[in-house]
Design a protein around this nucleic acid. Structure first.
Lengths: 351, 351
DNA sequence: CCTACCTTGTGTATCGTTACACAAGCTGTG
DNA sequence: CACAGCTTGTGTAACGATACACAAGGTAGG
């Protein structure tokens, strides 16, 4: 496509022959230029240019050297959604930053939900893995562990052989829920999916333990803690589950339950995106926030700040960077701890 | 980290010895299981499990097979920003979709702006490249062409050896600018950066040819076409250049020029993100849209629809998919042409 | 003038796999 | 029963590069 496809890629041996030097001299010209005298180096470069030699074959080099030159990122989601979830992209930006610092590429391992996903993990030419939040029963986590390469899981699940990075979601949920539910009588949670099936809908009396996504589970537990501490019964808390982390989906789900006879007066959303979708629906339904409806989000995005949303601040980008550093065996350089969180009080809730 | 790091990765030969079969039998067990009888296959799998053999070494396999198993994406930006630019992520989602369909990984080539970036391209273990919009003088494009691998450039620049995918930005800009500028007296463009230096600021009498980003250049030309067709002089059109495609930056830049003595009464923004940032600033300044200020965007995102923004609709995701298909030599499967565009009229402009 | 040392170029073995050709055993058929 | 044809297992030779050890020549110091 780019060049004449009929002519195969030249090899180092051909360049060596053309430059009348040994193969090793060509190799050194690329890998350790100082090892080669100026005139010889020039002759090699000239021959390489003449033959259209693009430099050492990356596959051969990495086989011989024993390093792949890339960090693998496994997204527990279909590849496509990874780039559409704003939380995932913030996290990836952090991973990317560290990779760039090491001159490494970033290989996104394509996950489709098919059984062959575990093969993809085994086949990935990488030096280590970062796993983005997935469900406890996702087979890619054992597959990652089985490669024997350094790995880190972010968000969940725990695996005995793989280090883990996440904030204390339960404690944070408890704190933010206390704000949302302060004077609530009809509380509700706007939740991430419970499991990989990603069934959406409104549930009552849901046992948090049902959720196989650790993040979802812990946050539900945190809400339960807060509600029960305020003297409520968990049975009273409805959980509206979104299949995806998108404002759009929260909007349509909320449009339905806000119109119902038993509309909530407080909603704790698991992300700012979901919260903002809900607020859009509330606006259309003529409900005032926080007057008719207290709302909280999660992540403290720019949009949340603009909308005056009470939320949990966490730095996903720093968490991504930390994961990559752990995989690469690099010392942490941040002054702030990436797994800290902080409650941000704004106008969408009010005591 | 994941396993005992002291014990090196077992090889196929060791598994073969343990299972008392030849190396080839082990290889076939993984690559073509049907080629091996059931009992033998079981013996091999058992030996592999016992030794902790994670399957064929990806590097060795790809060297031998001549395929890397991954598609390279080159982002003309520092890696970190790629995931923060909503346009880039939409595009990437399209590329990712096609990769997943082929069982390929997606390798993001880290670009930092340093001269060594071209080495990264040469060293990437990939089967082809997709280049996301960059400037005409970016050395990564020649570097990609030099690899001899199939490649496609999206958005710009043109390179003689590399196929090119983009919409007719000039024509689209002409169309949308005609709406924005219909009854304008103090027109303005809210622009992407002109070149890789990404200098921000307000310019007058800017020659579009100065812009080395093709997308920026063509859209400026389209605006000039429209304004001159309406009898104006290009000198009258101010160009506010943002360093990044973010609402936040548009907001702060707009806050300054909307407060000036010569505030614009029509602004054509090069993305919905920029337009929405501007509208936020306009709202704070007490300006009515379109009463005091006509605004147009670009891309037709959900947020633009929600905000009633006149915009140019294009499908970046489909364009990403098409790029990947071209690189992989796959026939296009979409019924709609990914490089079509459409003017979407909403309330932010009015004749 | 001889030895030690640095610079620079050269073979050879090897990284871990798979393509290919071949051989042995078994089945079925005319 | 001979022979074709399928199944299943086995060696050998690459794929394209680099680590390592070594050799030849130059130079500097005693």
């Amino acid at each position: 496509m780019a060049n004449d496809p009929s002519r195969p890629r030249p090899t180092m041996a051909e360049v060596a022959r053309a430059a009348k030097v040994s193969v090793m001299t060509v190799s050194y010209t690329y890998a350790q230029p100082d090892r080669v005298s100026e005139p010889t180096r020039a002759r090699v470069r000239e021959a390489a240019a003449r033959l259209g030699y693009p430099g050492p074959h990356p596959g051969a080099r990495s086989l011989r050297r024993g390093r792949a030159g890339s960090l693998g990122v496994v997204l527990g989601e279909h590849l496509t959604y990874a780039f559409e979830d704003p939380q995932a992209t913030r996290f990836l930006a952090g991973v990317a930053e560290v990779c760039a610092g090491h001159g490494l590429g970033l290989t996104i391992v394509p996950i489709t939900g098919a059984p062959s996903d575990t093969d993809r993990v085994a086949e990935a030419a990488v030096d280590g893995f970062v796993v983005w939040t997935t469900s406890d029963d996702d087979p890619v986590v054992p597959a990652v562990a089985a490669t024997g390469l350094p790995a880190v899981v972010h968000g969940g699940p725990h695996h005995r052989d793989v280090p883990f990075v996440a904030i204390d979601d339960r404690a944070a949920a408890r704190a933010v829920a206390a704000e949302a539910l302060a004077s609530a009588r009809r509380p509700m949670v706007l939740s991430f999916p419970l499991d990989r099936a990603r069934t959406s809908g409104v549930r009552t009396g849901l046992d948090p333990a049902e959720a196989t996504f650790r993040v979802t589970r812990e946050r539900l537990r945190g809400v339960r803690d807060a509600w029960e501490a305020a003297g409520g019964r968990w049975q009273q808390v409805r959980v509206a589950v979104c299949a995806r982390n998108s404002a759009c989906e929260a909007d349509s789900l909320a449009t339905a339950f806000l119109a119902g006879p038993d509309a909530p007066d407080a909603v704790m959303a698991m992300s700012d995106e979901l919260a903002l979708g809900l607020m859009r629906a509330a606006g259309r339904a003529g409900l005032a926030v926080p007057g008719d409806l207290a709302v909280t989000g999660w992540d403290d995005t720019d949009a949340a700040a603009a909308a005056g949303l009470t939320t949990v601040a966490q730095n996903l980008r720093a968490q991504g960077a930390r994961c990559a550093q752990l995989v690469l065996g690099e010392e942490a350089t941040d002054e702030t701890d990436p797994i800290e969180w902080r409650l941000v009080l704004r106008d969408s809730t009010r005591r």
